[in-house]
Simulated scan of single mutants.
Amino acid sequence: MIGGGALLSGCASSPEDPLGCGTVSGYLQPDASTHWYRVVVTHLNGQAVVSKPNYQLAPGEYEFTVAELIDDPNLSVTVTARVPKVLKLNIQSHQRYHLGALLHTDKRYMGKDTAYWEPGVWLQEQHECQFELSPETK
Score class of each variant (00 low, 15 high):
73 P>L: 07
18 P>V: 12
11 C>S: 14
31 D>Q: 08
16 E>M: 09
61 E>L: 10
36 W>K: 09
47 Q>T: 13
23 T>L: 07
97 Y>L: 01
93 S>N: 15
106 D>F: 05
4 G>I: 01
132 E>T: 13
37 Y>I: 03
131 F>S: 06
132 E>F: 03
94 H>C: 02
90 N>P: 00
124 Q>T: 11
95 Q>A: 05
48 A>N: 10
123 L>T: 00
25 S>H: 10
88 K>L: 03
89 L>W: 03
78 T>S: 14
100 G>T: 06
105 T>F: 00
136 E>M: 12
26 G>Q: 13
28 L>A: 15
3 G>V: 00
103 L>T: 03
15 P>E: 10
90 N>H: 10
138 K>G: 08
101 A>M: 02
52 K>C: 04
57 L>Y: 11
83 V>T: 13
110 M>L: 05
49 V>I: 14
73 P>R: 09
132 E>D: 09
83 V>I: 11
20 G>I: 01
116 Y>R: 02
64 F>P: 01
118 E>I: 02
20 G>K: 11
43 H>R: 14
126 Q>S: 14
15 P>S: 12
130 Q>Y: 09
84 P>L: 01
37 Y>C: 00
38 R>V: 09
91 I>F: 01
42 T>A: 04
47 Q>W: 11
70 I>A: 07
117 W>M: 00
117 W>P: 01
69 L>A: 11
12 A>S: 14
24 V>H: 13
90 N>R: 06
64 F>Y: 14
15 P>Y: 10
56 Q>L: 08
63 E>L: 11
97 Y>E: 04
